[in-house]
Design a protein around this nucleic acid. Structure first.
Lengths: 153, 153
DNA sequence: ATAAATGCTCTAGCGACTATAGGTTCAAGG
DNA sequence: CCTTGAACCTATAGTCGCTAGAGCATTTAT
């Protein structure tokens, strides 16, 4: 607890904060370094101490990450959320753009799953020389899609 | 062309190989460094020259990558495919494990898409203070899933 | 002979952490 | 007050699969 203006205020160590936000201690220091979390107050000895606001912010970040937003996106969302009275067009734009990315990755994974399943099912479990899986990898004609683009899966 | 045992054999520069396999020159050097491609012969001046076999191998790697296999997996698949008479159980195991990964990522993306869509659709396009998107990110109760695990999407 | 294109090595950067080394501080128990 | 051990600190390197750049050298075509 810290005593400020005659009131006691809850204070957390970095380890407590990590536990409460379900992340690692290093992750918190990483977010601070990236400018997503403010530099907290320090003890005489140099250890970080956090107030409730930092926990709220950290949870926001973690929840954003769980939803697949990049740290850059989350940084922008944090800034936008702090602008009182500001309309949420930009927030919507960031979320929508993210949805588009998620959707295209989803489609890619769906067709990949079909392709992999077909390949594995057609394997007769004989010798590698006759293995359909090896054959598909060797001979590009066996599969539908184009060369060149390797997207993240 | 190279003259070997009195025959002429097709020879490629690294640039030609890159074009034929639809990848970048640096990528080929990277694969060599990682041990996926053999060190090729060199000219007097030290430039790499490749024969057909390297192109075949490189295409195998690229096709594996297009299907989302890791370079480690591809390295194993390459080794296994060279063992004549060997049965393809291990090949199948690698491919199946990959399918499992693809499938779990797919499921994750599907639920993420639902969550994002719901969130975006419930936004009333007012001020950020009332924005449903910000609210969802701030207040974890709004969404179903647990804390802690942030998988790659 | 010269110039353009391509090649070479080495190094650093991406994103979002994670892990380690080697040291310091804090809180509790005796 | 002193010791112990857990938790903290900074700094650095590693993950994966490339990609980009600097600063040269070689090759090829004219």
């Amino acid at each position: 607890m810290a005593l400020i203006w005659g009131m006691t205020i809850e204070e957390y160590t970095i380890g407590q904060l990590a536990k409460l936000a379900h992340c690692k201690v290093q992750t918190i220091r990483y977010y601070e370094q990236k400018g997503l979390l403010d530099e907290p107050v320090r003890t005489e000895g140099g250890q970080r101490r956090y107030y409730e606001a930092a926990l709220v912010r950290l949870k926001f970040i973690r929840h954003g990450r769980e939803m697949g937003f990049s740290l850059d996106d989350i940084g922008e969302l944090l800034q936008l959320s702090a602008l009182e009275g500001h309309d949420c067009k930009q927030v919507d734009a960031i979320a929508s753009a993210h949805l588009v990315r998620v959707d295209s990755r989803l489609k890619r994974l769906q067709s990949l799953k079909v392709e992999l399943t077909r390949m594995i099912n057609s394997c007769q479990h004989g010798e590698v020389g006759d293995c359909r899986i090896i054959e598909v990898l060797q001979n590009h004609d066996h599969c539908g899609h184009e060369h060149g683009e390797i997207e993240k899966i």
